[in-house]
Design a protein around this nucleic acid. Structure first.
Length: 272
DNA sequence: CACAATACCTGCTAGC
DNA sequence: TGCTAGCAGGTATTGT
């Protein structure tokens, strides 16, 4: 489910409780959830560690763990489609979909919950964290993400612009919903080739990415008093999930097409 | 290399 | 009511 704005909201929500806490006990409740080396090994390394910073890069969550005497590591969490991280007041109280539990002092725990079990956790060395970050494109809300830099990336991509937006190596954090909303905001047809957009459209696309993602971060964050909800109620979706409904701007029926095996929604009147 | 298709999982719902 | 096909906000892997 979560795209960058929802992942950011998860980080903001758990950070005050998690940062500075010591992991008394780590439990991986499903073998496949731990990517790479064994789950038992990972649990053993985690126990007794203090969590430092809680950072996000694209859709990736990194919980930094003090090493001493060995070098620090980070617990990398990817929520994929249905994952979520939540604080539980009591580690014994968790749903069937709990995949990892990090128990802190006095029963408090951070629970990785993931019904569909596509999410992954992995212990990373400093080098692996650097590699991960280097493999991902710029954060859309960072100063580094300029119209110029985006245009350069797009010029090298012959795919449909919708698929360009979803490619994490080019821009970090955009997913299926916001890609559709961004293209609606920019007035660009999702099937246009990324490398063939005019300079004016590159500017429009860049602006739409920044505005849409900024708005989504605000709305996803605003809603986070309510655990388990993903911000869909606050952010006004104009095309996503609205197949057959009239476009709020021009009245044409919203269309759904398949791109890269996934649904794309767009307004044939507004997006050319 | 770039790109497309498929695999990975479970749960929900629209339609019969 | 009960079944099933189709779909779900992501990405690693495999194939062309």
């Amino acid at each position: 489910m979560p795209e960058m704005p929802e992942v950011e909201a998860v980080c903001r929500r758990i950070r005050p409780e998690v940062a500075g806490s010591i992991i008394r006990r780590a439990r991986l409740l499903r073998p496949g959830t731990a990517a790479g080396p064994g789950a038992r090994e990972m649990e053993a390394w985690l126990e007794g560690r203090r969590i430092g910073r809680v950072l996000r890069r694209g859709k990736n969550i990194l919980l930094y763990l003090a090493g001493r005497p060995e070098p620090w590591r980070a617990l990398h969490v990817h929520l994929r489609m249905t994952g979520n991280l939540e604080m539980a007041p009591d580690a014994r109280m968790h749903a069937a979909a709990a995949r990892m539990i990090l128990e802190f002092d006095g029963r408090r725990a951070l629970v990785f919950h993931d019904p569909r079990a596509l999410g992954r956790v992995r212990l990373m060395t400093a080098d692996q964290v650097r590699e991960l970050s280097a493999a991902i494109g710029p954060e859309p809300l960072s100063p580094a993400f300029t119209a110029g830099r985006m245009t350069e990336a797009a010029r090298r991509c012959r795919k449909a612009v919708k698929l360009f937006l979803l490619d994490q190596t080019r821009i970090a954090g955009i997913g299926n919903i916001y890609a559709a909303e961004i293209l609606f905001a920019a007035g660009i047809h999702p099937g246009r080739r990324a490398n063939r957009l005019s300079a004016a459209r590159m500017e429009a696309l860049h602006g739409a990415i920044r505005r849409t993602m900024a708005e989504a971060v605000r709305t996803a964050g605003a809603e986070y008093g309510e655990p388990g909800r993903w911000g869909e109620a606050e952010f006004a979706l104009r095309v996503y999930g609205r197949e057959g409904e009239p476009c709020g701007r021009c009245g044409a029926r919203v269309k759904r097409v398949r791109q890269g095996g996934r649904s794309t929604y767009y307004c044939p009147g507004c997006q050319r």
